[in-house]
Nucleic acid binder design. Sequence first.
DNA 1: GGTTGTGAACATATTCACAGCA
DNA 2: TGCTGTGAATATGTTCACAACC
Lengths: 285, 285
Amino acid sequence: MATGRTHRPATRSRGIPEATVARLPLYLRALTALSERSVPTVSSEELATAAGVNSAKLRKDFSYLGSYGTRGVGYDVEYLVYQISRELGLTQDWPVVIVGIGNLGAALANYGGFASRGFRVAALIDADPAMAGKPVAGMPVQHTDDLEKIIEENGVSIGVIATPAGAAQQVSERLIAAGVTSILNFAPTVLSVPDGVDVRKVDLSIELQILAFHEQRKAGEEAAAAASSSSGSSAAASAVASVEPAAGTGTGAAPAAAVEPPAGRAAAAARKGGPEGDVPAVMPA
Amino acid sequence: MATGRTHRPATRSRGIPEATVARLPLYLRALTALSERSVPTVSSEELATAAGVNSAKLRKDFSYLGSYGTRGVGYDVEYLVYQISRELGLTQDWPVVIVGIGNLGAALANYGGFASRGFRVAALIDADPAMAGKPVAGMPVQHTDDLEKIIEENGVSIGVIATPAGAAQQVSERLIAAGVTSILNFAPTVLSVPDGVDVRKVDLSIELQILAFHEQRKAGEEAAAAASSSSGSSAAASAVASVEPAAGTGTGAAPAAAVEPPAGRAAAAARKGGPEGDVPAVMPA
DNA sequence: GGTTGTGAACATATTCACAGCA
DNA sequence: TGCTGTGAATATGTTCACAACC
């Protein structure tokens, strides 16, 4: 997901696996909570539970950072907080700009957790001249014209894009040209960026679609029955809803049919052996 | 990340890898764009570029769905849109509730891409009585008291939590008890949910922390020099900034020091051989 | 010729299970 | 005794490279 690498084989320096890096913030959050409750030490088991992972994974993860625990005892909470913060680069204070102050941009600007952990909103930038000067989250919105100046003057290296999809690529190019090397993209577009620039994306509708996939699976789990091919609108819905009579977890969904298959081509598919719209088929090959 | 499984070994039914599922929405988006431009067919190479992946991966992904392409030609855009939509469960219309109508919740309610792809916001729910009845995104906010009723009456199986962290666990329990089996969690907490319930989380500050990690790496890339052990405050900052003189990509960041190491324990670490704050050490073991 | 679909090779990530140490 | 740290085993994911096919 994160790009960057390729860049050069690099000195193979301190190879912390990407999957581990992605979990460090989770551990850090759990540790911070313990720290606030003045808990002095914690075992891998306890911490893992608090972070929502299993203890073997957590220990492996920590082993990449060094030997920070004490056998028979556990980990010193304060000390671990510091080590992980440092590893993540949070002992520095990172100025961040948010570009695109619509609903989402404003919500991000107001988001407290933003500032709390080493990040500081240096500026809010929007292309709408009517927005310029308006205060959002206690900070005046600045116009896109000044983007480069703002980036340079504040030494910003991390930019957040919350613009409409159409503007995102261009905004990213301006950010990068001005010196930004990490981008958090909320716009539903694939950004193409040069090597050495990291992009992470957050996409609401992608997350929902992944959930829908699993949700659909649950509905079809015991359902080899029901679901007549195309025409089923609310008929299909009630069929789905009635599949799991009352098996403990939940009532089951009752979605109505929406998209139809493109005419004519369905037949072609049947020929080829791909799974078709009706029966929850098994793996074709 | 997504939970669910364990559930039972399941019939091993139609095993589409999780990584593939996570990319299907990306392909779908790219295909939808092509469809709107009335492009009839597309090669794996073109589509992969549009989706931001490589073509081998895309073909492998599609191979789990079936044989939907034509050798020497490519993929029929409309047909693929339909197949992927169906696979993701988007040929159904999923009613969704958003709980917690603060800045973020309101932004989500207003987010267009929400409705566009098979999802329909069935209700907005908030615990604040003052919010009740107020229109957000053209829809009246309802009170938490009615949560169960709303879920059941609308057959909602997907819930979005945009409450403060403190309320999230309790909200998730109520959602689940009422029949929700998939949750998209924007609150910065680990939700603990029963088997069979899927949770996906979106956490702004985690994403930023991951970026900060890589950002820090870039800064220290060529920097075997500078950075004197502990005491460095703004001195360390300027050292970091001056590391990469002007090496093509970007201006380099200029973050100021923030968190300090917890006194006394740093020495203990040095003993044990873990990497300490100064030199970008190599892998300890 | 051109492009898909896929085994086989490789890379990364997770889990197991236990030696090593406080 | 109790818990960490880690090799070895397994599982999952990616990339290569080419046969099959249009």
